[in-house]
Design a binder for these strands. Sequence first.
DNA 1: TCCCATTTGTCAAGGACATAGACAAATTGC
DNA 2: GCAATTTGTCTATGTCCTTGACAAATGGGA
Lengths: 391, 391
Amino acid sequence: MISSVAQTPIARKISTNAVIRTVFANGSISRADIAKLTGLSKQTISDVVRDLEDDGWLKPVGQTDGRPGRNAITYEINARAGLAVSIDLGSTKIAAAICDLLGNVVAETKVSTDPRGGMHLVNQFSDLIVELAFAAGTTADKLRLVVLGSPGVLDPATGHINVAPSIPGIDAINLRQVFSDRMAIPVIVENDVNLAAQGERWRGHGIETSNFAFVALGTGVGMGIIANGTLLRGARGAAGEIAYLPIGGDAFDPGGFTLGTFESAVGSAAMLRRYVGFGGRNASTVADLFAAFNAGETSAAAAIEETARLVAVAIAAIGAALDPELVITGGSIGARPELVNAIRGFLPRCTPYPPRIEISRFGNRAALMGGMGIAVERMHDDLFGVKLREV
Amino acid sequence: MISSVAQTPIARKISTNAVIRTVFANGSISRADIAKLTGLSKQTISDVVRDLEDDGWLKPVGQTDGRPGRNAITYEINARAGLAVSIDLGSTKIAAAICDLLGNVVAETKVSTDPRGGMHLVNQFSDLIVELAFAAGTTADKLRLVVLGSPGVLDPATGHINVAPSIPGIDAINLRQVFSDRMAIPVIVENDVNLAAQGERWRGHGIETSNFAFVALGTGVGMGIIANGTLLRGARGAAGEIAYLPIGGDAFDPGGFTLGTFESAVGSAAMLRRYVGFGGRNASTVADLFAAFNAGETSAAAAIEETARLVAVAIAAIGAALDPELVITGGSIGARPELVNAIRGFLPRCTPYPPRIEISRFGNRAALMGGMGIAVERMHDDLFGVKLREV
DNA sequence: TCCCATTTGTCAAGGACATAGACAAATTGC
DNA sequence: GCAATTTGTCTATGTCCTTGACAAATGGGA
């Protein structure tokens, strides 16, 4: 025998999947209505719903009322039947949340990142999860999945983080493996900007758009791409690493290799340098610089204007390559409306088909949201997905 | 009743699909071997194969021999059971071919493009197909599908060609609709560079690569992107329109809007202009220019060098956005090894992670090949694909 | 209050498709 | 010629789905 006999026959899996999807789409629904919507017979629906209720995935919640005919029992997803964790690892803060099968946030917290990095972070994650699980009224071993967002370039195959300048020691261990072994739960590691893009796709500006880019502008720069409705990672996981775009400087300058030509031109350090170059004196952080701009300082305005011009050219380049319908900006610089308005002004002057520009809906929670979105999607796939046999 | 009862139950469709895929993967195979490879029972395989043979999809071809035990009858795909047409519409030539279910070319031809454009082209396609069908020993009404590659930006939803400078009158009609109505066959219209990328994906350099780009350099410039193994079209079908990359000129120069900044800098007109600027006198076409280069003319070398430098920067930009493993070049300029070698020299100096560069395997037949690849894939989907019911 | 139309959900019968195992037929090797 | 091996069919059995009948529950009207 090459393949063992399927535990649950394919036909029943398909029926179960159809029922689950129908209940997800409709919230609270009777078996008779499920039958009408799926086209399956009442008998089949009753069987499937009985199995799902026995296994805890569905629960009866009430009755129809007021219409002629016998009242129907209505069923809902038992959201608590699947809980997962999303963690956003930043260089200064770690945000974490537990969400249920419907994507509701059940518990959430935020702590300072352990500056020692490496295995200390794994310990920190582990403690966070135990604490969150308690707050959610459950225990860590009941959690089905962890999605971890991290800066850096991840190898799509192994999950190893190859480049992560801002987090010490994290490229020395196989974070996914170590963390997963420690918790005895599957762990997905993903680039934080990619997660932010997924977050916007799930419940943000990208909800109705299959082709958009999330551009993060802050200390560093990065991009997450949603194309044909799914995340685009590239051959080495480096898709969207726009730090290396040959814009804002000479592409052949060897200095661009370390930081990246574009990042050297529009990162927060470059902005402050530019501000000082224009004669500014009152800003040591980007927040100061925007404050100076709002106070009417011309050198701050010039620094922002020049940055916006370069970002507009970068977006033109991205538009020529990817044709996104929408570009969502985020990060400490990218979330500033002052900058985004300036970009909106430049864009139609450097590309014939400018995409729409929006500021991220979730601010610094975008990556956390994206992690939850992936977790929910993955739980659905694992629990109710229909997988055809590989030949 | 909302949905009509499925004609063929899903389980049988899945089994049929598994059988077909196994036969495709193994060429000539016995029913017993199909059973071993799929894990399905011998009985089921016999039933499915009998149905497929009755309907003409499979045919017995011989017997096993020489091994102990009873000889088995071997079966093959009946390749002639599905024939489709691929057409590559160029500004000067139209190439067309008929291929079978296995992607074998059954008939092929090439004619000059009718310069009057518009509906005259539809007539020309129609005549070509009738002629090819005759050469293939069949009739046009037996063909299942036409894939048409055309220059220009196509709306992914409607198939309408929005921008096509080199073909007159083709943006005035809904080519897909008109052509499909005329032939009474489904027609797929796709950008020619996208088709070239698909061709390389199907049977060229991209056969083992899920993330690569096909860059066409000639009179105009364009790019086809394969990401996650599938074609990337973008929101308006303009993904890969690298003519508008802000490279090789000032992105804010309004002149760049008509032709595109990058195309103005590296198209064949720009190359010849550059050659003359360097003092060249002996070239009125790009072929002349490369001949002058091979004769040792320094102004030709300088023109090619400068073009290669700009293309390298463009590939660096594409690499930063998409992280392809490979870039395949084609077109009258992009297929020249002289240029590609120069690009290979520049690339590591302007990007830290240069992709591999290869010249298209199919020359000017790449788009035709891509059309066949799509046609074969689509025929398989239509004929044997498993579609789950939409809820 | 009673009856009817309507709706829900279960029961029972039947069909399609799958599997397992027995078995006849065909072939090689000794 | 006989054993071993392999192919492909036949028979029995089980699962899943559908259909149609029917009991149970409900609202509205006489």
